[in-house]
Design a binder for these strands. Sequence first.
DNA 1: TCCGCGAGCGCG
DNA 2: AAAGCGCGCTCGCGGA
Length: 988
Amino acid sequence: MPAREAAGENSVVGLKGMGVREFFARRRARAAIQACGDMDVPMVGLKGEELAVEFRGGAGTPVAGLEKRGKSVVPPTLSLFHLEAWARERRPDLLARLRAAQRAVEEAFLPHEEEAAWAEFEAAKAALERAWREWIMAGGGGGQDALFPQEEPRGEGAKGAPEADRGAVGGTAPGPAPAAPASPDPAGAVAETPRVPAPPPPGGEGAAPPAPNGDPGTEAPMVGLKGKESEAVRDATEKVQQSLFPPEPGAAPGAFRSPWEDWLDAAEVARVPDLAAWRAALEEARAAGACALDTETTGLDPLQNRVRLIQLAVPLYPEGKKRLVADDWVSPESGGGARVYVLDLFALPREGDRREALEAVAGLVADPGVLKVGHNLKFDLVFLRAGLGGRRIPMERLFDTMLASQLVTAGDFVPGGQWEKWCAERGLRPARNDRGQELKATRVDAHGHLVEFEHDNQKEIKPFYPTHSLQQVAHRHLEVWLPKDLQASDWRGELSEGQVRYAARDAAVLLPLYEVLARLLVLNRLVEVAKIEFACLPAVVEIELSGMPFDAPRARELLAAAREEAARHRGELEALAAGAGFVPRPKKGKRIVAGLNPDSSQDVLDCLRLLAEGEGLLAGDRLSVGGEEFDLESRDETLSRLASRLPEGSPLRRFAEALRAYRAAKKRADFLQKWLELLHPATNRLHPDLRQINPQGVGRFSASNPNLQQCPRGSDIRQLFRASEGKKLVVADYSAIEMRIMAQLSGDKTMREAFLEDVDIHRFTAGRMAGKAPEDVTKEERQAAKAFNFGLIYGMQGITLQLYAETSYNVKMTLGEAEAAREAFFRTYPAVAAWHAEQARKGRERGFADYWQHDFGQGFHREKRPWVRTLGGRLRVWPTVREEGREGPYLRKAGAFTELYNTPDQGTGADMVKCAMARLYRELLKRGLEDVKLVATVHDELVLEAPEELAEQVAELLGAAMELTASRFLPDVPVEVEAAACETWAEK
DNA sequence: TCCGCGAGCGCG
DNA sequence: AAAGCGCGCTCGCGGA
């Protein structure tokens, strides 16, 4: 029986005044918590100097591995060490199994994909834990031996609870042992055939609410201990601590210092004097099987700056081990370390040597026999490739700790509404900038270190996402602090000792980080998708380095025209406003301006109101035109509908139309201006930054500076992207890919057959819904169906559908018609409805699954979370929110339910494109097509630039790469790729 | 002057 | 019960 269902008040553990041993306290608490595999993971938090652990279930609840002490409970450790000690005499069989598994894991660890070894290790450990618990239950050893094996000093403090209390420990119900790496849906991994779980009948959705998570009466806020109770607990626990972890001599009391700081300080740093020594270092890395790479460059632009320093960290494993992180997964394994070779390219005597040194690095990067760990490897690889004259180089066995970190956080965030509380519980105080202003998304922890978040203020839920700079990731998992001031320092001139030290630390820290993140990938079943991400790095490097060809002179002409047009419409708007007697409201702290500013929504709304009033259309704070009501807002779709319902000469209509035209021209001008600003002086091309994984964890790329993914369609603007002299753009995209993916995800027979028969899916849908043959479908019906296809598969409702059909496809319908059409859609594709129901289940408590996290305080720990996966195995989880339901409070996912429908589909599309990019890169490399370059990726589209004479051949190659990749993800649905060789991007 | 917020809009 | 999703960029506005 889950402990939380037991009645009683909560048990609270406080370990106060741990000072320098704080992390040990956390570690012990975590070990105890993990021992309670049958409980819901309790909350552990740090409040100032106090460690507070709250267990749902109450003081009367027997909890394995916990001793009762007075009113509170002290968690003794149940570490692997203790388990092993216990098993030595009592269960040598299980111990042998564990040891064997451990060996297998250690040997298999470097090729990070060895999941099987991990599974066996977890299973062996679970078996041991189970046996231990049974033994405890049977009253074995009175509990004491199990907790403090012979090897440990058994001071008085370690004696633990009086005899009478020990029953609480022994009385634990065994419960199911913690399963071997439990994690969401193992079927999601690519290695296995993607399987969609059999969906429940559509009617099942929303039927019975999930069982409430525990008795609401037992819910208590996280508390630290105060007063007498805390004194008693502290004394007792101090003693336990002393006996288990005697203080190191010279440790400053009260000051916290992560053991990894010492580990980093102890890393050997070797300056590399010459090319021969560098080659020897690379050989050492090869022999180790894994290494970490980092570079410092003279600037941030690979096309204008150069690599200055290369740091190569080689692991020094402890005798007989293949790991640097200890079995508790937070502290360093004793006897382990790192050697960091620092090569200063500028110090090499000859220019030829620099080149040779880079070539040697390229050799390492190409070597599939050694794993290369880096943080944001894109940066280093772009410089490496540029440093080698832009030559395409093979890149194998990469492990990017930034991408790994982004993958394992998988869309997790803190909802804006819980932000302050969440921070307070963790002792995160607001940070201020140098002007004393409070920063919203940066906080300061107890040690004065900055914890940075990414805040998205555009979303309804105002999420705060974790960030993934090396500094943040190292702080999160190892609690080391890597100062940033040297990162931005000048790496061009004479280097200080501090700079070299800093550079070396950055590389060394990657080695333990890799181990922790690799395990997180394994536990969360993210290894396959991580392989996709790492494999597509070289293609990303290629895109950033190649850039898009851009016709700047023509762009300047268009910009002038767009500005002129915007000015014209602006004049018209100002005249209309003045004619209606519009006077702008004064803005605080701003100079008073006479006329209307069409960029100010305040001005625009005021003016709309005034004009409507003049025409007698104002009804309260809304507009009423021909019996139809409009919110007073100025979105384009509103203006469009408004204009279409007003008479030709109406000033309001003229204003709406002029505003729409002004905004369109302004937007074009903005794009053109931005692009011209960002045109690269060295290449005369546009080189956007690609972000491979975004905070929501869907998996699509995003681009910035500039974002060419939002380049306008259907105008002359795309024509500006014209292949350079003698070349062509080869453009290929997947057609209707999200519908095809939905057919695979849902397994809908009708939808699948439609694709098998290669019909026009929009026409087909329209025919099915109207009960007609596809050839009888009218143009309007097909247009409407197009709107349905893209909206309904993601959960769009009738009301939105009605609006969307009109504004996007110019199809007018009543709400009733829209709703009827929606129902007809799901009757046509019933499996899609069923799949929706299945996805929705995952947003409710009964559909939650284990999600593993890691930080220095708690080590590995898991929570039940709402989740979905793509067909590539990519995971997205959500935070939970407690919501009042009709039958009591229960947990559900934060944010919109429709995300559950969209993510597997959109994310699978991303998996496919990334795979195709990786595959294409290898193919181009293999064929030696050096003049063919990947230049853009836009969600379902890839763009290459190729010499004219090769264009047709390349189009075929590209199409094949994309199709082959897609068939791996969508075994049951055919995929169509349209590939063409064009002069400009506009021709597609 | 900087920061945060909100509206609005380009793409898939 | 209610519900398209995912991005980046620009501008105005108010507060410190």
